[in-house]
Nucleic acid binder design. Structure first.
Lengths: 192, 192
DNA sequence: TGACAAATAGACAGATCGGTCTGTATATAT
DNA sequence: ATATATACAGACCGATCTGTCTATTTGTCA
């Protein structure tokens, strides 16, 4: 059973993601979640704190989904790395996070609204991206890459490019463009 | 000499870019530009129209800068394509658009605040990205690529990945990560 | 000098914002 | 049954938002 706090965070995440952070008012979150205003301010000190809680929830949710998708795709680390882009395409096409749809990356969006790198929301975004790079580097090591960190940075950059292209241009097939490049990188960087 | 309209659009672009669209109020644009409110509403029917004008200005400004940087870098189309990433790194480090600094891509940011693909701001963003792809495809053709459209899409995706990585993670060296990948793509796709 | 266009300052309206407060209802546990 | 914690509804506050209005000033051209 969901707590009132969970109800708030889930509703906030959904609205922030679809309509933006600054454009989403407290009152809309309250009416859509059916929670009273005082309850919000018992759990969170301010709207800003609710934003951070929503982003933290998204971080867990997204990385759980991604690592699960990649690890169930294949036992082979090389194939797992490539399956990243298959998972992305499903996301772009609205087949993951069905209650949220696809409105780009919540962390890229947050960094766009809070451009100051010291803003807490921007810091969470940076941390989220770093954790994904670290996860990819782990897989690259398992796959036998001689320079797993560099390879992970390259794959992560392809991921970001695919997300932006899919969202701004409405082009979910960007995932396959990225996958093609990634295949070439893995062929060159991994032992046959 | 700058018209009052230009003064408004330039100030609006600077504030929208640094602080976000929804977070920037009309009054701040007016006070920083020294323009009266009625003058704004004579030139533009609403804040939304000013947003569109600012994005349109940014489109011209950015593509002028980019194509100029690439075409002055070398007469060779292959080298021009690679110099895209040198230009990006200068941008990331704040050495281009000195009055604006670097706060990510204004069009990615706009798409993040106006996620609806039918929103006029999102449409302008999509169009901006498409025009850059078309320009890259033209250069790829000149460089002798057998499939210039695909190559252009790949290079554009690398560009988007570099921008996001540089902004969200504060990592201007992402331009070189992208350039390394691009070099491999060009080596494989262009005649020796 | 006089007419006209454009921009100015600033009050104002109506809505919405984030956040505070009071008072009531509900549910659990002793 | 009573005490306690939690959440409810909703009024309320000051600030801010976009957009409208009036009245005044500035600059230009004839």
């Amino acid at each position: 059973m969901k707590s009132r706090r969970d109800e708030l965070v889930d509703t906030a995440l959904r609205l922030f993601y679809k309509q933006g952070f600054n454009a989403t008012g407290i009152d809309k979150i309250l009416s859509e979640s059916g929670v009273a205003k005082m309850t919000l301010y018992k759990h969170f000190g301010s709207k800003d704190e609710l934003i951070l809680a929503a982003l933290t929830r998204r971080d867990e949710q997204f990385r759980d989904w991604l690592t699960n998708a990649m690890e169930t795709a294949s036992p082979d680390p090389r194939a797992q790395l490539l399956s990243l882009f298959d998972a992305l395409e499903k996301w772009f096409r609205g087949q993951a996070f069905k209650d949220l749809g696809f409105s780009g990356c919540a962390f890229i969006n947050a960094s766009g609204e809070f451009t100051d790198p010291d803003h807490p929301a921007h810091r969470i975004a940076k941390q989220h991206k770093q954790e994904i790079v670290d996860y990819l580097a782990k897989l690259c090591t398992k796959a036998g890459a001689t320079d797993p960190e560099t390879l992970a940075e390259q794959l992560a950059l392809l991921k970001e490019g695919a997300i932006v292209t899919a969202h701004v241009r409405g082009m979910p097939e960007a995932a396959r463009v990225a996958k093609t490049i990634a295949t070439g990188l893995l062929d060159a960087a991994l032992p046959a």
